[in-house]
């Protein structure tokens, strides 16, 4: 399914900041980011012509394939994949639980690997294939892991569930679902505060032992 969608974002504000971006750029270039910033930008910052440069830096073009749909986006370099999915693409199935890579609620697949999307900047995944919970089912037909989570009641409030399911699918694909203990170890990055852990293990074991293609 190829469906190019251009996302029109609000223009960067102009004229609202007297000093802040210039100072930010100066400080960051001088203190920490000299190696990362082109020398011309440093010179420009010093020469007080950095507002335009900052404006240009503020958004970067990024192409993502999310659940089989191509998106051409313009994102701030500091925007996380998680916030891009939730706030720009309205794919709110991917959850924010900590924003620090400590809870797993934001787990998505990037080129088939599970990652914490809150620790992944959008610009880092330019050109990559992202699968979120919204892309797991085939139309009305649920993925076997989704079916198994329902059957085994692998959730209560449902908030960590998309992350658990994305992690669970990857756990089997990685070959880390060969025993109850191994599943527990490799699913420990996904916190469930409702305490559905035993049911989640049961769901994963059933999908693994059922030999379903995940």
């Amino acid at each position: 399914m190829e469906d190019e969608r251009a996302h029109i974002l609000p223009e960067a504000d102009s004229g609202t900041s007297e000093n802040s971006r210039r100072n930010f750029l100066k400080q960051s270039t001088l203190l920490t980011a000299i190696a990362l910033t082109p020398a011309t930008a440093v010179k420009a910052a010093e020469a007080h012509v950095d507002e335009k440069i900052a404006g240009a830096f503020e958004k970067m073009p990024v192409k993502l394939e999310v659940n089989g749909i191509n998106h051409s986006l313009s994102v701030e370099p500091r925007a996380t994949l998680l916030d891009i999915l939730r706030e720009q693409l309205d794919l709110t199935g991917t959850k924010k639980g900590c924003d620090h890579g400590q809870c797993g609620a934001c787990t998505v697949h990037v080129d088939g690997r599970r990652v914490n999307s809150c620790l992944t900047l959008g610009v880092m995944v330019n050109g990559k294939k992202i699968t979120t919970i919204e892309g797991l089912a085939k139309g009305d037909e649920l993925h076997p892991m989704q079916e198994a989570f329902i059957k085994h009641d692998g959730f209560q409030c449902g908030y960590c569930t998309p992350g658990q399911i994305m992690s669970a699918v990857a756990c089997i694909r990685e070959g880390h679902a060969n025993s109850e203990m191994e599943i527990r170890e490799y699913m420990s990055g996904n916190i469930c505060r409702c305490g559905a852990y035993p049911n989640i293990v049961n769901a994963i074991q059933e999908v693994k032992e059922g030999g379903f293609k995940v």
Partner: peptide, 18 residues
């Protein structure tokens, strides 16, 4: 099974920030 299970496993259940 949970009546809202399908919404929860497909990411369609909307929480307050969504």
């Amino acid at each position: 099974s949970r009546v809202d299970g399908r919404l929860k496993v497909t990411g369609k259940a909307k929480y307050s920030a969504e």
